[in-house]
């Protein structure tokens, strides 16, 4: 699929995963790349931007094996943003789907 296309929706994907649970970077990358094929390295710069915008905070937590890991957590404004973007996406996606289905019907 088109890279530009995927990158555009990456932000809502990251926000959405974090809305369910706090994640460390590797875990978050795994959750996303499980479903979307993307250059995983670009998720970290995105996380930094989300942190700058105040949508996400980080904290360190000890892990069973090895040194502490950096966890990402959604802030209040991050939750609001996630909610808004999700709604916007849902509306957009259903409109596109309706259009696509419409055109195939006409072609048939």
């Amino acid at each position: 699929m088109n890279i530009q296309f995927k990158k555009g929706v990456l932000e809502i994907c990251v926000l959405s995963v974090l809305a369910h649970k706090d994640c460390y970077g590797y875990e978050l990358v795994g959750e996303i790349s499980k479903r979307i094929d993307i250059s995983e390295g670009t998720i970290y710069p995105l996380l930094r931007r989300l942190k700058d915008e105040g949508y996400v905070t980080t904290y360190l937590q000890e892990s069973v094996e090895g040194p502490p890991r950096k966890y990402y957590r959604l802030t209040e404004s991050g939750r609001t943003e996630e909610h808004d973007q999700k709604e916007e996406w849902m509306r957009f996606a259903s409109s596109v789907n309706a259009l696509l289905e419409g055109t195939t019907d006409a072609a048939d």
Binding site: Y24, G25, Y26, G41, Y44, G66, R69
Partner: peptide
């Protein structure tokens, strides 16, 4: 350190 952590895990 983000990338080092990624490689480590």
């Amino acid at each position: 350190s983000d990338y080092t952590e990624h490689f480590r895990i």
